[in-house]
Structure formats: structure tokens, C-alpha cells
């Protein structure tokens, strides 16, 4: 299992999903992928298809409208898969708390591994979130999610 764990830690491919964010967090996620931060150093790549992804990065408050689609995208990802909630809205519905059409947090819909707080979080914080996720993965060993 040593080789597989080694490979998994070095090749996290991320998929970005917007559940209705104001675009603040999305811009920060995209900024984290620009040459300035160059996450390809760690093997991180942004992929287009959920079938290719290891980590689902969710931004924005989870609305009732998007719930079905979000679950479907999550189910389309192959195991082992991880979820990162980016921004206050995603982690705890933020400014939209107690709205009739918004879930209190992403963990009410799909299991979440890492929360990155901030409105919006800095790119450094998002990269730090991925590093925390990899540390968690290291402890799991054998890749069970």
C-alpha cells in the first residue's frame, strides 16, 4: 500500500463546484490556481469532470435548488473522494443563516472533510486547507474515506 499512498498524496486533482456563491470565493479558488501560487508544484490540478477528481471544492451557501445536483456530482466521483467547504457560506450558511431556501451548512447534504473559513478565504488559506486534507489522508493510510 506504500506506493499507492505515496501517489495519492502527490496527485490531488480538484473539482470546483459553485452552489450559489457570490463569486468572491470562486475568484479566490481560481486565484489559488494561478501562476502566482502555482499549485502544480504539489501535483494539484483542476479537472473538468467529476469522474477524474479526488477532491470536491464547494463554494457558496447550499440552496435547496442545488442540493440534487450537488449530491449527483458527489456520487459521480470515484472513491476515495474528499470534500472541502470553502468560505463561511458553505461551511455554516454565513450571511444567509435561517433563510428558508438555504441549508445550515454543506455537511447537512454531503460529508465534509475540511472547512476553510473566511469571506472570502485567501488563496493561501485554501492551499493550507488542501495541505490539512492531505495530512488527514496520511493518517488514514490505506485510503479508506
Amino acid at each position: 500500500m506504500g506506493l499507492v499512498d505515496w501517489a495519492r498524496l502527490r496527485s490531488p486533482w480538484v473539482l470546483h463546484f459553485n452552489t450559489g456563491a457570490c463569486n468572491g470565493c470562486d475568484i479566490e479558488v481560481v486565484a489559488a490556481l494561478t501562476p502566482r501560487y502555482d499549485v502544480e508544484r504539489f501535483g494539484i490540478r483542476l479537472v473538468g469532470s467529476p469522474r477524474h477528481a479526488d477532491i470536491l471544492i464547494v463554494t457558496g451557501p447550499v440552496t435547496k435548488q442545488v442540493e440534487k445536483r450537488l449530491k449527483r456530482v458527489y456520487e459521480q466521483m470515484p472513491e476515495p473522494k474528499f470534500v472541502m467547504a470553502v468560505g463561511n457560506c458553505c461551511a455554516s450558511s454565513g450571511a444567509f443563516r435561517n433563510c428558508y431556501n438555504v441549508y445550515p451548512g454543506l455537511d447537512n447534504v454531503i460529508p465534509v472533510d475540511v472547512y476553510v473559513m473566511g469571506c472570502p478565504p485567501k488563496p493561501e488559506a485554501i492551499i493550507n486547507g488542501v495541505v490539512k486534507l492531505l495530512e488527514k489522508l496520511k493518517k488514514l493510510k490505506g485510503g479508506a474515506s
Binding site: W6, S11, P35, D38, E40, R41, F42, G43
Partner: peptide
Amino acid sequence: RVGPLYTGPWGLLQPLADFVK
């Protein structure tokens, strides 16, 4: 930018890591 860096020397093993994963 610098591209793959931490997987093996100068990131040489990056394509292999992607393949194994």
C-alpha cells in the same frame, strides 16, 4: 512558474504518481 516540484527530484515522478493514483 516552476511546475511539478516535490514528487521525486524536480518533480520527475509526477506523471508516475498520477498514473499510480
